[in-house]
């Protein structure tokens, strides 16, 4: 049973005008089996939270802590975090020319498990994961994310989620840019992951529509680099009806 604990996390980025504080003390605890949705307007720092937890070098941690089952995540390198059980589904997955999807997946799985996956079951698993996400098996031979449509990139992220099977998944606007069919396919994938024992999900989104397919246990409203309000699924319904105005006014 794993727990991701974010405490008072403060993060800044370097800009031309000096350091800019983006996260101003974020506290969140995601326990095994829980799905937390973070909702907030553009520029509120949602993606910064996701990338900081994953260890992107662009972000400077200026305060607070992140632990996974008590282990100091912030002291780990990017790949150590992944091997500890964290996964980030990116909003804009990166193209890696010349590296095939199947080579990439096998390399990642080998790195995570410390040994190469058994060939026969692995090929079957990969094909099933691709098929489940409505991706043609020929995807295996294509270069990672190169020439993929926006929807294909997102489905490829969720196929990785299922294959790499982390403890805690951070999904950064996985719903953005998806049409309704793709949204369902992606949501089904996330729900299959959630249905496994002891998985934690941090679902970052701008819109409420994905929450119709992935029902969160907790909803947090994220404004100006911190959690402005937390509640149950009903909070999402309220946001659907009233938007972020009341929080934005309070923040100003």
């Amino acid at each position: 049973m794993s727990t991701l604990e974010i405490k008072d996390l403060a993060v800044s980025v370097k800009t031309d005008d000096g350091d800019k504080q983006i996260l101003k003390g974020v506290t969140l605890t995601i326990k095994a089996g829980e799905t937390h949705a973070i909702m907030g307007p553009n520029g509120s720092g949602k993606s910064t939270l996701a990338y900081s937890v994953a260890g992107h070098p662009k972000y400077d941690i200026t305060g607070g802590s992140v632990t996974l089952d008590g282990e100091d995540v912030l002291a780990m390198s990017v790949d150590e975090r992944a091997r500890a059980g964290l996964f980030l589904a990116m909003q804009y997955p990166v193209e890696v020319p010349g590296v095939s999807v199947s080579n990439f997946l096998r390399t990642a799985k080998t790195a995570l498990d410390g040994e190469a996956p058994k060939l026969r079951t692995w090929v079957k698993d990969v094909n099933k994961a691709l098929e489940d996400l409505n991706l043609d098996p020929s995807f295996g031979t294509r270069s990672v994310n190169e020439g993929f449509s926006g929807g294909e990139k997102k489905r490829h992220e969720i196929a990785q989620l299922e294959l790499l099977d982390p403890k805690v998944a951070v999904l950064d606007e996985t719903d953005s840019g998806l049409d309704i069919d793709a949204l369902k396919v992606v949501s089904d994938g996330v729900n299959r992951f959630r249905a496994k024992d002891g998985k934690g999900v941090l679902l970052i989104t701008h819109y409420t529509r994905i929450l119709r397919y992935i029902e969160p246990d907790f909803v947090h409203v994220f404004v100006d680099g911190r959690v402005a309000e937390s509640g149950g699924p009903e909070l999402a319904e309220e946001l659907e009806a009233n938007g972020y105005d009341k929080y934005l006014r309070a923040a100003v």
Binding site: P57, M90, V96, G98, A111, L112, S143
Partner: peptide, 25 residues
């Protein structure tokens, strides 16, 4: 590219190797 590969657990060394092989592949 390195961040993306490493965020999947691939070590920095292995990520660099993948990128260079990919570059020439």
């Amino acid at each position: 590219q390195l961040f993306y590969l490493r965020s999947r657990g691939v070590s920095e060394k292995e990520a660099r190797r993948l990128v260079v092989h990919g570059f020439f592949n």
